[in-house]
Amino acid sequence: MAASRSHLALSRRELLTRGLGVAGALAVGRSALALSAALPEFLALAAPFKIGIQSYSLRGYTKDGKADRAKALAVSHDLGVHFWEAYPAHIPMTDDLDQIRLIKDEMSAAGVETIGFGVIPFRKGDPANRKAFEFAKNLGVSYLSADPEPDSFDDLDKLVDEFDIGVGIHNHGPGHRYDKIDVIAKAIEKHHAKIGCCIDTGHFLRSKEDPVRAAEVFGKRVYGVHLKDVKDAQHFTILGKGDLNTHGLLRVLNANGYKGLVAVEYEENEKNPVDDVRACLEEVEKVLQAGL
């Protein structure tokens, strides 16, 4: 109907009024600073899928020569990020259930849920394949982003079916074995529907592939999205400053009924990425305000 609007096109203030109550919205409206701080609530209300980050974006925070999960979680909390695809250096794989419980408690205390994990390899006949799925189940993730050996798919067919955990093939850019949309599509076409693609928009742009077409081609077999921007197929940049059609991508994901994680991933400014990651999240907000 011409007179109606999708909730995705409502203003941030309208969404906050509906989602937080009038008192909360009035408090938010007192200053531009407060309104900016409400970004996470807006994203949670407006997005038909989960908006978060690939924690690789925060890899530059280290302690004793290792990725500092506590710092990465603190930064995520400050950004209002509630969802991670976890980079293995932040959450190393383990079969120690007590250690996994401690990690989950730490994540929960920071208000962050781990939706996905990766990128990890799979090899034919490797016992580590099952261990990865056991770890994923114990951690509570819904998918693994992966770089599987071409002869490992028969193993994966059985594991995704047994554990009901998706595997998204991650495209790593020019020269990688999975750098092209059609190559990935061919690799998965005769395999279990829980094996699909983790769309890395930046690497597809570097490979001169269209990420929007990737969302169209993979449809229900999208398991994870790494949302990043690239200019002229060469330079990683803040979302909205490169060649990614973010609106087109999110529109197709929404039309396909995607409910999973769209993880902002920022490659640059490794030592202090906070302002740039925030700018990327604000670009997602801008796209959502335009409506899908």
Rank of each mutant, 00 (worst) to 15 (best):
S55T: 06
V262W: 08
K63G: 12
G248F: 03
F236N: 13
L239M: 10
A72Y: 00
L253I: 01
D275Y: 01
I199E: 11
D154F: 09
V22P: 14
G196W: 05
D275I: 05
V22K: 14
R30I: 12
T237P: 05
D210G: 05
V225K: 02
A32F: 15
G242M: 00
G219P: 06
K286Q: 14
Q289P: 02
N272P: 08
M1T: 09
T94P: 05
H90A: 03
I100Y: 09
D126P: 00
G173V: 06
I238C: 07
V141S: 09
E270R: 13
F133Y: 10
F135R: 01
P40L: 07
K63A: 14
L250T: 11
T114G: 13
S55R: 02
D157K: 05
E285T: 00
P150R: 06
T17A: 13
V262T: 03
A38R: 00
D151T: 08
F204A: 01
S31I: 11
I181G: 00
E149D: 15
T17W: 14
K190R: 14
N254A: 14
N256I: 02
A23G: 13
F218S: 03
Q234I: 05
E162L: 10
R13W: 12
K104G: 08
L33S: 15
R13C: 07
V141I: 15
D200W: 00
V230M: 08
A110W: 04
H176I: 03
F135M: 09
V264F: 06
A74K: 11
G173S: 00
S152L: 07
K190A: 13
F163K: 01
L26Q: 15
V81D: 12
D126K: 00
A109W: 13
I53P: 04
A110I: 04
M1F: 09
I91S: 07
P174H: 05
A38T: 05
A72S: 05
L39M: 10
